[in-house]
Design a protein around this nucleic acid. Structure first.
Lengths: 196, 196
DNA sequence: TGTTACATGTAAGTCGTTACATGATTAC
DNA sequence: GTAATCATGTAACGACTTACATGTAACA
């Protein structure tokens, strides 16, 4: 049930609409959680029912023929977020298609295997750049969300807030580097196996 | 739909019962995929209906008052496995509770955060040992499944079969090391933040 | 006038988890 | 006899995906 907590966490920086939240899960650099928009809208409604968030309907545009719903945390929502952060995680069960598939690469043609390693590499290189950019922005305290969050917290807490986020995204970067390295050694392996 | 392919892959080494397959997903070292037994039994029935596997009912014990169903791949099943291996994977969407939570560690007490990093470390250290043991066993060609698989394959293919598996589990070990390192730096960070 | 971005949803289906349920066999 | 392991399932629920659906607003 972590989508709920991902949403609570984003909303703790200030009110947002479902649409804005969905953008964070889809496109922004600070996404360690993914969710498609239908799941977000329904979860927000459920959370509203559970009293974790409240929605304020806002008019859109000058003619105001449409409304948008901006959600903000309630006391209960803020408490639930803090409770969850302190709670110990049980490690997630392992499910990795790329590695599962690679276990049986002997069934595929060498060019196919090589292409798959190269795609794997390209994907994680892109991710790496994304994480590195984000770490730089966090250090500069130059992201929208972080600025909002810092403005709500006492000065003394700022360093910790920034440091934990930097630590997370540096961790993501380190992970990406491992994947790139794995793919590189994969390509080398294909070469070694084809030219004996 | 990768449970299906994980099952096809295991069955390609020879017939197995649902119970044996479930053990591989739960307990054995060579699990890059997890699934609980109800899902396995139902998926096997579905796959049987789709003609990817056939079941042979075998008597259990001398009195044979119970039966077990050993599944083996059909031609279609083996073909589907090979098709899937050659198919390019789209990268899985990111969903990581540990990292998501760590992003908001400023909300928890330092001892709580420290405990969480230590648990993270302990978990991945255990995993690391598991992967390392498995790599050693694969190199020695000393796992039940590998022996069965090699016995079905031509001598010339043996090196590739072993090499890809070694590569996967070395990759898993490398991942575990990154997590351990991340947790270590996490503990250091807590210390730094608490003793200024 | 048409395209892109904003904004919110429903519905159907698949995949995964958890609890419940049953019974046989093996080893002590 | 009793506990552990073998062996197979059903049922209910929760999480996630995909397709469909609708309309507004901003901009060129």
């Amino acid at each position: 049930m972590s989508l709920r907590h991902a949403l609570l966490a984003l909303l703790d920086a200030g009110p947002m609409t479902g649409y804005e939240l969905a953008k964070h899960f889809d496109q922004s650099a600070d996404r360690v959680w993914h969710a498609p928009h239908p799941q977000i809208y329904t979860e927000l409604r459920t959370m509203e029912g559970a009293g974790l968030v409240v929605a304020e309907e806002q008019p859109r545009g000058p003619k105001a023929r449409a409304v948008k719903r901006a959600y903000r945390l309630t006391e209960d929502g803020a408490r639930e977020l803090r409770r969850w952060v302190a709670e110990e995680e049980t490690p997630a069960p392992l499910r990795d298609t790329a590695y599962l598939k690679a276990t049986y690469f002997e069934y595929a043609a060498p060019e196919t295997v090589r292409r798959q390693f190269e795609r794997h590499r390209a994907h994680h290189l892109e991710q790496l750049h994304r994480w590195e950019r984000h770490v730089a922005q966090l250090r500069a305290r130059d992201t929208e969300l972080l600025r909002r969050r810092l403005s709500l917290a006492p000065e003394a807490a700022h360093d910790a807030i920034v440091a934990y986020k930097v630590h997370v995204y540096e961790g993501m970067a380190a992970r990406a580097r491992v994947e790139i390295d794995w793919a590189d050694r994969g390509v080398e392996l294909v070469d070694k196996l084809t030219t004996p």
